[in-house]
Amino acid sequence: MSLENAYHDELGDYFARTVGTSPYNAFTDRPAMLDLAGDVAGLRLLDVGCGAGHYAADLLERGARVTGIDGSATLLRHARERVGDRAELRLHDLETPLDFAGDATFDAVVCALVHHHIAARGQLLAELHRVLRPGGFLVLSTTHPTADWRHHGGSYYDESWVDLTLPHPSLTIRYQRMTLETLLNEWLSAGFTLERLVEPRPLPTLREVDEARYEKLRQAPCFLAVRLRRPGGCAD
């Protein structure tokens, strides 16, 4: 993600340590996003905000050729430990153009729980549209607008930047609240078409691990995930 909001140092280590088993990441967001991605065998795939490499590892196992980018050197170190040299990993500030990639370089893009950390979202979406081949797809997840409204309170239409305290005495993450209207309009204005929208539910196996969070995530949405298409070419 952006250098400013990326998970550096202790925050990056904390994220890498917990994301593999987190009820929110491992049992809710990642299964939904991988389902949206579908069959990726043989595809040239860009993992935007690749973090500690959990998505990259799964996508490699499914046969994709993966390039991962992130603004955190800490997380990229963990990603390299996870996937070795099987993926190309780059340190990149997502607030800047994707100048390492030519037009129509990739068949697919995965952008998991990064969108809300980016200030220059219009630029990033335009760049993702550019580097995707015509007919290629983008799967993207972000915080659910109603989840942010419930947690932070105030007006649903408040789109301020907020800090979320993690289950750690000194760590927070910063991101922007957005309405569903804002999100959809940004995606469509960038030239994408919407193929699917899901509000991910937790895997049933989470009940055995953390029943309280399973019930919470089963009753109220935490994330929003979409599959978007760059028009043109041959759809998969």
Rank of each mutant, 00 (worst) to 15 (best):
L217F: 12
L89E: 03
P23R: 08
A190Y: 08
C111T: 09
S189R: 15
L124P: 03
C222K: 13
G122Y: 00
Y175C: 06
I69V: 15
S170G: 05
L76M: 07
D163C: 05
L98T: 01
L183C: 05
G42Q: 08
R207N: 11
T96Y: 02
T142R: 02
E186G: 11
Y24F: 14
L36T: 00
E215G: 02
L91F: 00
P31H: 09
C234E: 15
S160F: 02
V198A: 06
G63E: 03
A220E: 14
A108P: 00
P231M: 11
L124M: 12
E88F: 06
R196E: 15
M178N: 12
N5W: 02
A37L: 15
C234L: 15
A56K: 01
P97V: 11
E61Y: 00
R62N: 00
E186L: 11
I69E: 06
G233N: 10
D93C: 03
H144Y: 05
R229W: 07
R174P: 02
L132M: 08
P221A: 11
E61A: 14
P145W: 02
T143Q: 14
T18E: 13
G153Y: 02
T205W: 03
R62P: 01
L34F: 09
S155P: 09
A112G: 13
E61I: 00
V198Q: 11
H54P: 04
A52L: 00
R90H: 14
E61V: 02
P97D: 05
G135V: 03
D39Q: 07
P31W: 07
S160C: 10
